[in-house]
Each structure stands twice: as C-alpha cells, then as structure tokens.
Simulated assay, not measured.
Amino acid sequence: MNNCYKLIGIAGDRSCPELPNFIHCRNCPVYSNIGRQLLERTIPENYRHERTELFSQERADAKTLTIAETLTVVIFRLQGEWLALSTQVFKESISPTLIHTLPHRSNQILRGLVNIRGELQLCISLTHLLNLETANTPIATLSPVVYPRMAVVEKAGSVWVFSVDELYGIRRFQQRELRDTPNSMTAATHHFTKGFFYWREKSLGYLDEELLFTTLDRKVYR
C-alpha cells in the first residue's frame, strides 16, 4: 500500500512536489485512494470471530466492574439518623396513608395494615426495629419543606411498608467509599448496617437488607 504521505507528505519530510498544490495530503487523490483501499481490503480469516470475542469480553468485564464497584441506594431519615437502603429492594414511596391496626397484636414493630393500590400490606416501625431514640431537639433537614413519606420495600415476594421522616432520593456510591460502622451508632443500628458512607458531612448508615428482611419475618410472623 502506498504510504507516501508518511515519507514525503505532511507526516514525512514534505518533499512531495504536489504538496504546494494540495496544501495537505488529505486533499490529494493518492491519499484518498489509500483510504479507499483500506476500507475495501479483504477481511482476514477469523476476523469477525476474534472481534466478537474481544468485544463480548470487554462488555462482560465492564458490567462486572460496574456491579462490583457501584452501590445505588435510596437515602432517608428516621429521627436523627440518616440511612441508606439498596435500590434493589426499594419498590416505591407513597404519601402517608391510614394504618389499620390489628387486634390482639401488641408488637411495637408491627403497626398494622396499609392499602397500597387495593392490596393490604404489612406496615412496620423501622424506628422501633432499629431502637432509635425519639429526637427531643429540632432535626436539621436537607430541605426547607419536608414531607413525611412511606417507603415500600420488597425482597423475594416479601413486602413491607414503613414511615420515614424525610426522603432524600437515590444516590450512587463507590464500593471503596463504604467504611466500617462507627461505634457512635446505637447497638441495634450498628447490628443492622453493613457500614457507612460519608455524605454531606453526615454518617450515612448502609442497611443490610438481607438481615433486615430476615429479622422482620422472624419478629412479625412468629
């Protein structure tokens, strides 16, 4: 293949007699012909197979890396504690709704039943489960206007609803940002967290959803 542009052209010593006329090699028909030959060349044997394998591997590696390193969570507040729960179990948030108490049930964790679009779901107090103290002083909120919400979570067909005092929304963290849970957290909260993130100058407890659902099944149904 003619590679005169590398020898006497714009990328070489510029001694080509046609260079003053064309100013740049890309304007020369010889250069255009080189590009045409490159595009029309015969595909080497096994080229398609090799490139398919390469791109498949790169895509799989990128996907594995993203899953392994990125944690996507929903951030909310209970009393004075900011907590995070994986988006994989977070189903939706709704406006506070009427809670129907259940007779002969004195469990502080189980508050009753709520109607979610025609289906009755169990409503629990995550505040009691985590043994969070009621705040006696005003809480610093992220927004000047805070609307309490109810969170609906689901894992393996098990659905729970609980109230939150403030809902921030979705945030992504890197796996390396997860730190060991500080001793300043209550014993119950410490037990239910995988660790914490530094977020907006706060300690954000990352809840262990597997332990959370297992404990709720045990404490509510038994």
Rank of each mutant, 00 (worst) to 15 (best):
V30G: 12
L113A: 04
M1A: 14
I75Q: 07
I34H: 08
L71Q: 15
S86K: 09
L71R: 15
Y31N: 01
Y221V: 06
R117T: 14
L204N: 01
A84I: 05
L102A: 10
N107K: 02
Y147W: 10
T127D: 13
I34N: 01
G112F: 04
L129P: 07
Y198E: 04
T97I: 07
E53A: 14
V73L: 08
V74P: 01
R117E: 12
T97L: 09
P103L: 11
K63P: 01
E92F: 08
R36D: 04
R36S: 08
R179F: 09
H24P: 02
Q108R: 13
I34K: 03
T127F: 01
E40G: 03
K63Y: 05
L39Q: 09
P20D: 03
L130G: 05
M1T: 09
E119H: 12
R41Q: 15
T42A: 01
I139G: 07
L54C: 10
L142T: 15
P148K: 06
N107Y: 06
I8H: 10
L132W: 03
L212Q: 03
K6A: 14
R26T: 05
F76H: 05
E50H: 02
R36N: 07
V161P: 02
T66P: 00
H128K: 13
Y31R: 01
D61A: 14
E53W: 01
L126W: 01
P96F: 06
F173L: 10
N136M: 09
T214C: 06
K155R: 12
F192W: 07
I94F: 04
R149F: 03
D180W: 04
I34W: 09
L19A: 00
R176P: 06
I8D: 06
V114W: 13
E53R: 05
V220P: 02
N46K: 11
F173Q: 08
